[in-house]
Design a binder for these strands. Structure first.
Length: 547
RNA sequence: UGGGGGAUCGUCUAACGGCAGGACAGCGGACUCUGACUCCGUCAAUCUAGGUUCAAAUCCUAGUUCCCCAGCCA
């Protein structure tokens, strides 16, 4: 964990030898995305830096939305990200009895009351940003009456919406959150964990601070939009006489990434609207999407370390994430060859029917990856973009009369071109230097261009899925309700590719570098007969034709 | 016209009142059996206006501007 404004706060406290405990508190109502990863890395990183503990706590106070499948998926994603969290998960619903008793305590202290105002009235009485609120007629009910009403609420005697429990704070506060916030509401849906035992459920503000206190959380880190909630957080701790040291809420800026959306609500709409294939669609900034795309967990962690931490609203360039992926994958991905847009090359001086097997390094900088054998024959495919009849200046690839290297194979000189009736190149003829087997020039002559290739008769046909950013606009949310209009029309481009034969056996999730093309990850949709590869990220490409 | 926060290269992010540094992106070059990787170089910033000071991104004053808050969501 690098230094940031939160470590500075904690460092200052270390003088008084404060221990450190944090928590990651997702709601189990959706899947984790890269924005959560920022919070995860922060919370676990802080705990690790100060030799403390970070707990995973499901914030499952809302029975309408909390679901077991999400909790399970979140735990899974967290593990994948690299935070195994030895401690068992906690659940806010574990604390319902304690929370309820705390509510009773507030009522007894004259600090909470049951209000029968309707939702609409509640809103009206709350006032507005610029006008003060109005006290509810129920505000001065006696303690005994409140106790009795809350008991009946809790016993299920009232319908949802009939009444709520509110804190008695200040209807004139300029901070809307302090205008007698709702603590408990009635819900009849069974809760996925505690079933029908509870008829009343605590709201966020009441739950978060007390759960933190119960667990011994010292630093409760959350995003900026909760800044106004902090006085309320502290109010509960004080009125319930939580002993010092009390948990301290500190807010930081949430992550925004350009070219995508990072909000559960919006991501849900993408899935529900069929704009992507699901939560694990490789275009999604969800952890599952990134994983399926081939992004290593380590790259996400590195990314989170690099973006830093402040209270400033920021938008991170997606290229930083891509850079982290390339950095990690360059180290860890074995190399392979594949051709996306094939152009047939006939090697005139290589006998028809003859075959050879050529050794190729699986990683040019790490011999530990070993070698593999590549079949070679009279006809090979090269990338269509690696041949030009009239090449521009500084073009290092194949052109009539030019010589290039077929990687790990032979030096190849172009001797002819064939066109179809439209004048399109359909075939290239060439001759290899028989003394260059392995790709080395026998006389040491410089051959600038090196091309990837596959043997035509041995090539394995596969599907490749190429992805564009989901949105054409760097900030689609700036379009308000129209945000979906910024969707990239063909953000998924599915096509065929020809792979070297060894690639048939790759397990889903395995990432290769297809040399000169990019990193590609085996997709679970594939089979040994027809593999499917997702392009994780392209290689950097500094080649630009002049002009 | 309420309250709470924020403003440093294009984008992130550093800098006790003491040389505005780093990363990503861009550009140029070297190297290269991946136009990758690596290496080198380069471009580029303190929201504005006053003030305090030998010295201000930092302190003071006044502005500007952006974000958040009116769920029985979190």
């Amino acid at each position: 964990m690098k230094d940031n404004f939160i470590t500075a706060i904690i460092d200052a406290q270390q003088a008084t030898s404060r221990s450190v405990q944090t928590r990651f508190p997702p709601e189990p109502n959706g899947y984790l995305h890269i924005g959560h990863a920022k919070s995860i890395c922060l919370n676990f990183g802080i705990a690790a830096r100060y030799a403390g503990q970070c707990l995973l706590r499901f914030d499952d106070t809302n029975p309408e939305t909390a679901r077991a499948k999400y909790a399970q998926a979140i735990a899974e994603d967290l593990r994948w990200l690299g935070f195994a969290s030895a401690a068992p998960s906690r659940y806010a619903s574990d604390y319902f009895a304690h929370l309820h008793a705390s509510a009773v305590q507030l009522i007894e202290a004259g600090l909470a009351y049951v209000d029968t105002l309707s939702g609409a009235q509640l809103r009206e009485y709350r006032g507005s940003l610029t006008t003060p609120g109005k006290e509810s007629p129920d505000r001065n009910r006696s303690v005994a009456e409140n106790l009795e009403l809350f008991r009946r609420m809790s016993a299920g005697e009232f319908a949802p919406g009939a009444c709520v429990l509110r804190a008695k704070i200040d209807m004139n506060s300029p901070n809307l959150h302090l205008r007698d916030p709702v603590l408990y509401r009635i819900r009849t849906q069974p809760h996925y964990r505690v079933g029908t035992r509870w008829k009343v459920f605590p709201l966020y503000d009441f739950t978060q601070c007390l759960s933190d206190a119960v667990e011994g959380v010292t630093h409760s880190l959350c995003t900026l939009e909760f800044e106004d909630n902090r006085p309320l957080y502290e109010w509960f701790l004080e009125k319930l006489q939580i002993p010092d040291p009390r948990p301290q809420q500190i807010e930081f800026a949430r992550l925004k990434l350009n070219g995508t959306v990072v909000s559960k609500r919006l991501l849900t709409q993408l899935v529900d609207g069929g704009h992507v294939r699901g939560w694990d669609d490789p275009r999604m900034p969800t952890l599952r999407g990134l994983r399926r795309r081939g992004c290593p967990a380590e790259a996400i962690r590195e990314f989170c370390a690099k973006i830093g931490l402040t209270k400033k609203d920021t938008t991170i360039d997606i290229q930083l994430l891509e850079n982290c992926m390339r950095e990690e994958l360059d180290r860890t991905a074995p190399r392979a060859m594949a051709v996306l847009e094939p152009l047939r090359v006939v090697i005139e001086n290589y006998p028809d029917g003859q075959e050879d097997s050529l050794p190729a390094a699986n990683h040019p900088a790490d011999a530990g990856f070993g070698e593999r054998q590549l079949p070679f024959s009279r006809e090979v495919y090269i990338e269509r973009t690696d041949f030009m009849e009239q090449p521009p200046a500084r073009y290092r690839r194949l052109a009539p009369g030019r010589e290039v290297r077929l990687r790990y194979a032979y030096l190849l000189q172009c001797t002819g071109v064939e066109h179809d009736v439209h004048g399109r190149v359909v075939l290239v003829r060439g001759r290899i230097d028989p003394d260059s087997r392995g790709g080395r020039a026998p006389d040491g002559r410089k051959v600038r261009g090196t091309l990837h290739w596959v043997s035509a008769q041995h090539a394995l046909e596969a599907e490749v899925r190429l992805y564009q950013p989901l949105f054409t606009d760097s900030d689609p949310t700036a379009l308000g309700e129209q945000w979906l209009q910024a969707l990239t029309p063909d953000s998924l481009q599915s096509g065929r590719a020809w792979l070297e034969p060894g690639l048939t056996a790759a397990p889903p999730g395995q990432v290769y570098q297809f040399e000169r093309l990019g990193y590609f990850c085996a997709d679970p949709d594939g089979s040994p007969q027809r593999p499917v590869y997702n392009r994780t990220v392209t290689l950097r490409d500094s080649w630009r034709p002049p002009g």
